[in-house]
Write a protein that binds this DNA or RNA. Structure first.
Length: 379
DNA sequence: AATGCGGGGGA
DNA sequence: TCCCCAGCATT
């Protein structure tokens, strides 16, 4: 029914009879096992859009509470367009990939201002919005509007790679096209939204990366890798480079009972989020001196490092961070920014109102930190 | 075509 | 510890 896929980008051909049988098996399975997720209870294209943005590189379980809060605060695209970015970031706090929030907010304003407030139901218009790539365009248009676009995400790639023993590395350049071709070929144009979700659900619930449940898989009789007993060898993946490590030092600068926070620039890592000012520690250098120097460089304050407050480890995709946080005093001098977008002296109570990134939350939640801060702020 | 961009969950 | 997750933008 299929021929093996070669190492090049040539997609497999699936004969129509197999295609139809496969769709039926998948649809029947999905009807039985589909999870009751909040975004599956609505037809609202805006709500479905929000869910797809949040689900980007993020697991369902993580997304659910964020999705619910987001739609309670911004029930329509008009609400979202009216609020300012900081309010959106505050709801996004902890979810990661903050440019998603930035882009979604920008896109909402574009829809309201230039598209009559209606989420566009055509590919060119919707795909042109910031933060909308091939995946989100296909997902929203198929699920909310029934349009015949096949989605390709990590789950779909894994399922297809196994079904057709596709040899092309999923993480390599140029892998998208062949997978998209197969996905479109396989798509059930009668109910594209259901079909797309079914493939992804299969990838999440059955066709798992490490321990696939092939015994319970509705597609095992169509699966080339299953027949060859090589399921876990797919999808192919090219080697990736090792992650580096970085050490940073930051200071909690206290003056008149308030803490100094700086806002990260509008672009780049953790854009727009707030943190304690600090900077990198050169390998072998003393963290407290690095803290002192970084604060002088970034906010123009000459601080006195009073002592070590807490140490935080945090892993990003491309590097691991070890953050040393010191208690500092700076009785005089005024702030002159060099790098941060803004600064603010806040009370402990106000700390929660600003969007902070995860490493800062980890620091604040660490043993004894909040007690120490309370004492210092009073004293 | 390659790289930057978070954070969490599971093995 | 490492891998992977309902990807997109930028260069």
């Amino acid at each position: 029914m299929t021929r093996p896929t070669s190492i090049d980008a040539e997609p497999p051909i699936i004969v129509p009879a197999t295609r139809a049988a496969l769709r039926r098996a998948l649809a029947a399975w999905y009807e039985q096992v589909r999870r009751d997720l909040p975004w599956r209870r609505t037809q609202d294209p805006y709500a479905i859009w929000v869910s797809e943005v949040m689900l980007q590189q993020t697991q369902v379980k993580t997304v659910v509470p964020y999705y619910q809060r987001f739609l309670e605060c911004f029930p329509t695209i008009g609400h979202l367009a009216r609020v300012d970015l900081q309010a959106v970031l505050k709801l996004w706090e902890g979810l990661g990939y903050y440019s998603r929030a930035r882009n979604l907010h920008r896109a909402a304003r574009m829809v309201v201002e230039t598209m009559g407030g209606r989420v566009p139901d055509q590919w060119p218009a919707f795909r042109s919005l910031p933060g909308v790539g091939d995946y989100i365009a296909a997902a929203v248009l198929s699920i909310a509007f029934g349009r015949p676009y096949g989605v390709v995400d990590g789950n779909v790639k894994r399922v297809l790679a196994r079904l057709f023993t596709m040899e092309i590395p999923v993480n390599g350049a140029g892998s998208h096209k062949p997978f998209q071709a197969v996905a479109d070929q396989l798509l059930d144009v009668e109910s594209p939204g259901q079909h797309n979700q079914a493939v992804m659900e299969l990838g999440a619930a059955v066709c798992a990366p490490r321990n696939p449940l092939c015994e319970g898989c509705p597609l095992s009789r169509f699966c080339q890798a299953f027949k060859a007993h090589t399921v876990v060898q797919y999808p192919r993946r090219s080697v990736r480079r090792a992650v580096g490590r970085q050490q940073w030092a930051a200071g909690v600068v206290i003056r008149n009972g308030r803490l100094l926070l700086t806002q990260r620039p509008a672009a780049g890592l953790l854009a727009g989020l707030w943190e304690f000012p600090g900077g990198p520690v050169q390998t072998g250098a003393a963290p407290d001196l690095a803290c002192n120097r970084a604060i002088r460089d970034m906010v123009g304050l000459e601080v006195h490092v009073e002592g070590h407050l807490v140490s935080v480890r945090h892993a990003y995709t491309h590097f691991k961070l070890q953050l040393e946080i010191f208690l500092c005093s700076a009785p005089q001098g005024r702030v002159r920014l060099h790098g941060p977008a803004a600064f603010r002296w806040v009370t402990l109570a106000q700390l929660d109102q600003l969007p902070l990134h995860k490493a800062v939350h980890k620091a604040l939640a660490a043993e004894g930190v909040s007690e120490t801060l309370r004492r210092c702020v009073v004293g």
